[in-house]
């Protein structure tokens, strides 16, 4: 962190943060992560590449939208809770207004078959994007200490529980998460012991 601090610049004020995150969020069609990396690391140099990866892995682990958690951590680091508020506010405010205006006009435009058709097509693409994201996430399991069979077992049990049996999410996360945690502790202990 100390060596990284030399190359790092800082926002001048929470307002500076708010503007930067607004600009960033408005560029993020279909996901903000890639834009965040380019703006925060490459262009503004508020974080090093390593800090970005670290912050993102923590953000991913915590509940809540990853990019919102990431904004929160970066804002907090510079200006405490005021910075956190400014960064999250910038990330959400302008896109929120935009998407609500879209939603409101959709209710009036929905009677046009072309609009309804366009949204059906966009919806199908949206579901494809999420399935592709899931496939990409599969790759991150390769280095999981649980190993392929236990990962497949946990993942498939989750999938079947949610889609076929419609088990409430709370039970899935608590039940299977706890099972995963116990299994992973056992696997990690065995691997550390075996080395």
């Amino acid at each position: 962190m100390n060596s990284a601090a030399q190359a790092r610049l800082s926002p001048r004020s929470p307002f500076d943060l708010f503007i930067a995150f607004t600009v960033l969020a408005l560029q993020g069609f279909g996901g903000v992560l890639a834009v965040a990396q380019r703006e925060l690391v490459d262009r503004r140099r508020w974080m090093t590449r390593e800090e970005f990866v670290d912050a993102y892995s923590v953000a991913q682990l915590l509940p809540g939208p990853n990019v919102v958690n990431l904004s929160l951590m970066l804002g907090d680091r510079f200006f405490g809770w005021r910075g956190a508020l400014a960064a999250v506010g910038g990330m959400l405010f302008a896109p929120l207004v935009l998407v609500l205006v879209l939603a409101a006009s959709y209710n009036q435009l929905a009677s046009f078959p072309a609009v309804a058709g366009a949204l059906r097509g966009m919806g199908a693409v949206a579901s494809g994007l999420i399935l592709a994201m899931a496939l990409k996430m599969l790759g991150t399991l390769r280095r999981n200490p649980l190993g392929p069979w236990l990962c497949a077992l946990l993942g498939l049990t989750t999938l079947v529980a949610v889609t076929v049996f419609r088990v409430p999410l709370a039970w899935v996360v608590i039940g299977l998460g706890l099972a995963g945690w116990c299994l992973a502790r056992w696997c990690i202990a065995r691997q550390d012991g075996g080395q």
């Binding site: 682990l61 899931a134 996430m137 599969l138 991150t140 399991l141 999981n144 200490p145 649980l146 236990l150 990962c151 497949a152 077992l153 946990l154 993942g155 498939l156 049990t157 989750t158 999938l159 949610v162 999410l169 899935v172 996360v173 299977l176 998460g177 099972a179 995963g180 945690w181 116990c182 299994l183 992973a184 502790r185 696997c187 990690i188």
Partner: peptide
């Protein structure tokens, strides 16, 4: 490690 496969399944 334990939560990752559950997340992917979700």
């Amino acid at each position: 490690a334990g939560l990752a496969p559950v997340t992917v399944g979700l």
